[in-house]
Design a binder for these strands. Structure first.
Length: 785
RNA sequence: GGGAGAGUGGCGAAAUGGCAGACGCGCGGGUCUUAGGAACCCGUGGGGCAACCCGUGCGGGUUCGAUUCCCGCCUCUCCCA
């Protein structure tokens, strides 16, 4: 039901847009490569391709049977060669533009399963399958340089006013821009082969004079050298081996005790010339910054924790306002800005104010320079898995790594292979006829790359493929893409905030830079729908086994009832709990609507469609009319805004509740009949986005020959919403004391007089002097006494 | 540890500076000459015989007026470390 909710919301918006005369592209695609499909197939012993295609067929027929109005002409599946042909094309484009490179880097490795694991498959340092120990192992991997776009991905967030604030913030934090400096520390008497300079990144160059030691990541170049050749190699190597078993989360946890071992070498402080011990410590990560940290115990929490545990010196170089900091009395690091002390030429300066001068000075002294770094890392796209898009690269003994020419695409994933179970190497490596090829450059015998791509690359450009899904020469025709893009509304879960939603912004920008797209941002309006939980509040998931299939549900209460139940339970952005009783209530509503239209159809067909004379109608008839227009107003508001359809569904109930029994409606006076008829005609159209099947049937019942979705969406008549008389609340000192009824256009003096004349108000005012009377037209009077 | 969001009847919720609880579910009562797990009608935040009083997680503030805005706290959910 989770997907059903997502699709149902989009389907309703689409239908509303259609009735408002818009050209709507409402496509559907299958993100079909990847681990979930592959793992399910392995579990059942069915080849992944067969399993996936079978599932797609079942799911498509489910979607059709529950009435989702997709444009199936534009259906795509990322696992089919006509699609991944162009995933490979985009990979080659990235390569041409210098955004693809290979790097040797540590990956998660489960020894018992003999396989590489994705990060989310490592739980508490153990394999999610066998609970075996997971270690880091070095592998040559393909990376995409998304970090080249870090600043633009950050800046682009300012142009997305219709994205949820939480997602914008999340991406901003994920990209994690930090300004600081890169400073150089010479290694004292660096032995042969050992790095002789450690470049540290720091956001606090103003604390340079407070450095009392350096800390390096075990995986850093310097850390590795020390583990092999350093004066304290044995201890460092043992420490590094232990560290490699820990997750980043464990290593960075603030609560954990900071550990480290002496590297046996020391560095030279660039301004004082002082000798600084260098520790190998696992609270430093090689993948962030440079892997080397200048430690300032007085002004950094982690360095403080490490220094106090080790009895290392603490040197204060930033003083607080009353200059009360002293090394002996400190219980925490002082990490705020303040006045610089014991800092050479910068003594007495404010640390923030001096930053610009400090950076120039450091540059002039050759110590280091200003630098901006990002938390965002390059995108590791290699997977040692079978069920994914092959990487279009060839390894040639003579020419090195050579891209497959675009004309030779696609590099087809061999589907006849039997051994697609991961055993610690890419399954494709065993498929001789796949691996064996010739070098595109020199023609000699060569080998294909045997890794496949991360599925996030498949889904990073599908929004563009929809605009031109059958193009056999290019991923898309720029004319088509530019005509449709950007996407006006994109509905998806919030869990993709830092994954998919960042990657497809990135790829869109690359395609823009390469001249294929006008837009730089793929989506104007992003909406996160809420989860669907079961009656006990558990999110529906296959692993929990509490999934309710939409098709079962449709059989139980009907698709329209299931849709309207979903819309009515809560705003679309909130979590809902699926409730059988609630769904039954919705089925009852559908039945009430159906009965009403059945009873009134012939009468309605016999009446003219205009509402002349509505102002002469009875109060009841005008009330019915007002409810119909109010329903329209609520629907327009929801569809154009936050997609919270629950008050609109309530509006249907309210209209039905005020509508007279059909027999008396048909027997009413002429003006009244016109009001009732208009209300029913509006209702018949207003329900179309919510309950499309019922709406089509009613439309036909009322003599419509074409689809209801070719009918025009009715406009709200502000005159119909107005009332002659309004009820006004009367408060005395902010407390409600009475309600009075006055003409809607009554002037302030009249309203005020009526309020003061009320008996309950008089009682409340007894013995008090009236100081002030506030009149809010049409709403309330507040008497301050 | 940091960030984002949420807290309203028995339950899902509405109202976003102006009558708290619309609408639905559930529950209680009634009608349909038997039954009701159907349908329809009436009632349904708490207290009080009543007039009235109290009530939107807790404590403060701004305002004629606060569920709504501001400050502090508590609890829960999600994301990141």
């Amino acid at each position: 039901m989770g997907h059903f909710r997502n699709y149902g919301i989009g389907d309703a918006v689409c239908r509303w847009m259609l009735m408002n005369g818009k050209d709507v592209l409402h496509p559907f695609g299958w993100d079909a490569f990847g681990l979930p499909a592959e793992n399910a197939a392995i579990k059942r012993g069915i080849p992944p391709g067969e399993w996936t295609r079978r599932n797609i067929a079942v799911s498509r027929s489910t979607l059709e049977s529950v009435g989702m109005g997709y444009d199936w002409e534009r259906e795509i599946a990322t696992c089919e060669p006509d699609y991944y042909h162009f995933t490979q094309w985009i990979f080659l484009l990235l390569h041409e533009r210098g955004l693809v490179y290979r790097k040797n880097a540590p990956v998660n490795w489960c020894g018992d399963c003999a396989t590489v694991l994705a990060n989310e498959q490592v739980q508490d340092g153990c394999c999610w399958r066998c609970d075996g120990e997971v270690v880091k192992r070095d592998l040559e991997q393909w990376y995409i340089k998304i970090t080249d776009y870090a600043q633009r991905l950050l800046d682009g967030l300012d142009d997305l006013p219709r994205w949820p604030r939480s997602t914008i913030t999340s991406q901003r934090n994920w990209i994690g821009r930090s300004e600081g400096a890169e400073l150089r520390f010479a290694v004292a008497g660096a032995p042969e082969g050992c790095p002789d300079v450690l470049e540290v990144f720091t956001t606090r160059p103003d604390t340079l004079w407070g450095v009392t030691f350096l800390a390096v990541a075990p995986e850093s170049q310097f850390g590795r050298w020390c583990a092999q050749h350093g004066p304290n190699a044995a201890e460092v190597a043992a420490y590094a081996a232990a560290a490699s078993k820990k997750t980043e989360i464990e290593r960075l946890a603030a609560s954990r005790e900071k550990t480290g071992v002496l590297s046996g070498l020391s560095a030279v402080h660039p301004t004082t010339g002082e000798s600084l011990p260098v520790f190998v410590a696992d609270y430093v990560l090689a993948s962030y910054g440079t892997g080397y940290v200048m430690a300032v115990p007085a002004h950094d929490e982690r360095d403080f924790a490490f220094a106090t545990a080790r009895g290392l010196p603490i040197r204060i170089v930033i003083q607080n306002a009353d200059a009360s900091l002293s090394p002996d009395a400190m219980e925490n690091a002082f990490s705020a800005a303040g006045r610089m002390v014991a800092s050479g030429p910068f003594d007495g300066r404010d640390s923030q104010e001096a930053m610009g001068d400090l950076l120039s000075w450091l540059d002039a002294q050759g110590i280091g320079k200003a630098r901006v770094t990002f938390r965002l890392r390059d995108w590791l796209i290699s997977r040692q898995r079978y069920w994914g898009c092959p990487i279009p690269m060839v390894h040639c003994a003579a020419c090195g790594v050579v891209p497959v020419p675009k004309e030779a695409l696609p590099v087809t994933l061999p589907e006849g292979v039997t051994n697609w179970i991961p055993e610690g190497r890419s399954p494709l490596a065993d498929v001789a006829e796949f691996v064996a090829t010739t070098c595109p450059r020199c023609g000699a015998a060569a080998q294909r790359d045997v890794d496949t791509m991360d599925t996030f690359i498949d889904s990073s450009w599908y929004h563009i493929r929809y605009t031109d899904p059958h193009n056999a020469d290019l991923p898309f025709d720029p004319v088509q893409a530019n005509a449709w893009l950007p996407v006006d509304l994109y509905i998806g879960g919030a869990e993709h905030a830092n994954g998919h939603l960042l990657y497809f912004r990135f790829i869109t920008k690359v395609l823009h830079d390469a001249g294929y797209l006008d837009v730089e941002e793929p989506v104007v309006r992003l909406f996160h729908h809420g989860m669907v939980a079961d009656a006990d509040g558990h999110t529906m998931s296959k692993s929990r086994g509490n999934v309710i299939s939409p098709i079962d549900n449709a059989q139980a209460v009907g698709t329209d009832a299931a849709r309207i139940a979903m819309f009515f339970f809560a705003p679309s952005a909130d979590e809902i709990r699926w409730s059988e009783k609630g769904a039954k209530g919705a089925a009852k509503l559908v039945q009430r609507l159906y009965s009403l239209f059945t009873d009134c159809a012939d009468w309605l067909k016999s009446l003219p469609a205009d509402v002349r004379g509505a102002n002469d109608a009875s109060d009841v008839a005008r009330d019915v009319r007002r409810h119909a227009h109010e329903l329209l107003r609520r629907l327009d508001h929801a569809f154009a805004g936050d997609l919270a359809l629950n008050p609109a569904v309530a509006g249907i109930y309210e209209l039905l509740n005020v509508f007279p029994p059909p027999a008396s409606a048909m027997a009413a006076g002429d003006a009244d009949q016109r009001c009732y008829a208009e209300a029913l005609r509006i209702l018949s159209l207003a329900i179309a986005p919510l309950t499309p099947h019922l709406a089509e049937e009613v439309h036909e019942m009322l003599g419509g020959e074409d689809s209801v979705f070719r009918a025009r969406w009715p406009a709200v008549d502000p005159g119909a919403l107005a009332r002659d008389e309004v009820e006004i609340a009367v408060q005395v000192r902010g407390k409600l004391k009475a309600r009075i009824t006055v003409a809607a256009d009554a002037d302030e003096a009249t309203v005020r007089a009526a309020a003061l004349a009320d008996a309950a108000v008089q009682r409340a005012l007894a013995g008090r002097e009236i100081r002030k009377v506030i009149v809010v037209p049409g709403r309330l009077v507040n008497i301050v006494a």
